[in-house]
Simulated scan of single mutants.
Amino acid sequence: MAVNSEAQFVTFSLGEEIFAVPVEVVREILDHEEAFKIPHGPDYLLGLRDVRGQGVPVIDLRLRLGLSRTTKTPHTRILVLDVPVEQRMLALGLVADRVYEVVPFQPSQIEPAPDIGIRWKSDYIAGVVRRDGGFVVIIDLARLFSDSGTALAGVVASQRVA
């Protein structure tokens, strides 16, 4: 067992903030295209996108995290992810303002979400890493989408049928 086994993460930005997801959940990175709208979905569900014959729900991660809606630029990308959630694999497209690189982090670099003395919506944070004078927030995707409501669950159920 390697003591300092590093993990690889894909880094991306939402506004000025840098986030990361484990590289093993990233299926591919696509240019942004408008998604097929789904009526009555939560505001962060932009719709469906055909990814190699599979209907993949596209999520505006900025809205899911309580930030302002994404404004499309030439750098906007969609990270297509396969996220293990509650004994199934959930295919999702996350909209990112910009995707940067794959970076290795040592387990010793990853700090827990900060404790600010009160309860706050930090359960989606798997950890933070100090980098280049700032922080990279590692997102716990399973936690972020495990309680995502019936509209997204309906989309996931239709993925399994196809």
Rank of each mutant, 00 (worst) to 15 (best):
V3M: 14
N4L: 14
A7T: 12
Q8F: 04
F12H: 13
E17L: 08
F19S: 08
V21N: 13
V23G: 05
E24P: 08
E24I: 09
V25F: 01
V25E: 02
R27T: 08
L30H: 09
D31T: 13
H32Y: 15
E34W: 05
H40C: 02
G47C: 06
R49M: 14
R49A: 14
R49C: 09
G53Y: 09
V56L: 02
V58M: 06
L61A: 06
R62T: 01
R62H: 14
R62N: 15
L63C: 05
L67W: 03
S68L: 11
S68P: 09
T71P: 02
K72P: 13
P74D: 07
T76L: 05
I78R: 03
V85P: 06
V85M: 13
M89I: 15
L94H: 06
L94K: 03
D97N: 15
Y100D: 15
P112K: 03
A113W: 01
P114V: 00
R119F: 00
D123T: 02
V129E: 05
V129Y: 01
R131W: 08
G134T: 10
V137C: 11
L141E: 00
A142T: 01
R143W: 00
S146F: 00
D147C: 01
S148C: 07
S148A: 15
G149M: 09
G149P: 07
G154E: 15
V155Q: 10
R160N: 11
